[in-house]
């Protein structure tokens, strides 16, 4: 293999397309990471089963679409609510008893992820399943340097909608004030009439619901396997770790990582791009372990 085969020289229009693919990639990673970031940011719980919640969202969509015949657009909120309900049960049943033991939470949620994978494998079998892309998303944009499928455009839009919705709930509603109060000082929040346990349940359910909605979209993007979650959870963790605290951090880091990945894979290839990206993240965290946005930085 010569260097020339490995290294794609720069040319403007394909490079611009790579940037657009980067946005698409960033939106996918952001959607995958959003629920994880909310749960970690609010409760300090590292949910190792997050990828499996995405997987459950995908299978929920598959069940409603293929077996019941619900249209895709309705499947999205259904996946959100079904997985949110599962998340609520997980918080009540497992996580609640482990708030004072973060390492055990890590282990428990990892065990949970194995249980979820096996359960789905028992019910649906190990062979791939498919979520159909609705016909109104079955188009392709091919204008000069832009090549983007309708579904990917839809995912970019959904990322914007979900981030905006989450921001609105956190910063513009009374529930959001309760959540942010518990985030800052749980005891003080409780001393002023806030039921912190209820806030935790709702937050976990909401984060799980976001994972469910993510799964609905990823199911349409790729095939469904019981262990598909692991493909997304690595990127989700990268986004959260690099982003640091808060929504804005996740938005910035997903954009940054998505673009970097896309640009590197334009010049080289996907595998090498991933290698460079992971290396860069390690170096970045060596110098800024708190991530892009840190606790002490002002929001106003």
């Amino acid at each position: 293999m010569s260097v020339h085969d490995f290294w794609t020289p720069f040319s403007l229009l394909p490079f611009l397309n790579a940037l657009i693919i980067g946005i698409s990639l960033a939106s996918i990673w952001l959607i995958a990471a959003l629920g994880l970031a909310i749960i970690y940011g609010t409760m300090g719980v590292i949910n190792m089963a997050h990828g499996e919640l995405i997987m459950l969202g995908a299978y929920t969509t598959y069940v409603f679409q293929s077996l019941v015949g619900v249209p895709f657009l309705i499947c999205l909120p259904l996946a959100f609510f079904v997985v949110a309900a599962i998340g609520w049960v997980i918080e009540r049943g497992v996580i609640r008893t482990l708030y004072t033991r973060p390492l055990d939470t890590l282990l428990a949620t990892w065990g949970l992820s194995l249980i979820l994978i096996q359960s789905v494998r028992l019910i649906f079998g190990g062979e791939p399943q498919y979520v159909g892309v609705p016909s109104w998303l079955n188009f392709q944009i091919d204008a000069s340097f832009v090549h983007l499928s309708g579904l990917r455009l839809f995912i970019v839009l959904m990322a914007i909608i979900l981030v905006t919705l989450t921001w609105y709930i956190l910063y513009r509603t009374t529930l959001g004030i309760r959540v942010r109060a518990v985030m800052q000082d749980k005891e003080m929040a409780a001393s002023f009439g806030i039921d912190a346990n209820r806030v935790y349940s709702l937050t976990f359910a909401y984060g799980a619901g976001l994972a469910g909605a993510a799964g609905a979209m990823f199911g349409a993007l790729k095939t469904l396997f019981p262990d598909m979650g692991s493909a997304y959870v690595v990127e989700a963790f990268l986004v959260v770790v690099v982003g640091g605290i808060g929504l804005i951090g996740s938005v910035f880091s997903s954009a940054l990582l998505g673009e970097l990945n896309s640009v590197f894979s334009y010049f080289t290839n996907d595998t090498f791009a991933r290698f460079v990206l992971f290396t860069l993240v390690v170096v970045f965290l060596r110098f800024r372990p708190q991530g892009i946005i840190s606790e002490g930085m002002g929001r106003r």
Binding site: I177, R180, A181, Q184, D185, E187, M188, A190, S191, F192, G193, I194, D195, A196, R299, R300
Partner: peptide
């Protein structure tokens, strides 16, 4: 009763070290 219900029952608390929520505005 847990803390939040005691607060509802009519207790107001000014803790040691004040513990105002630093990221919140005065209004919040």
């Amino acid at each position: 009763q847990p803390t939040h219900l005691r607060a509802n029952a009519g207790l107001g608390y000014v803790p040691q070290g004040r513990r105002v929520l630093g990221k919140f505005t005065v209004r919040e």
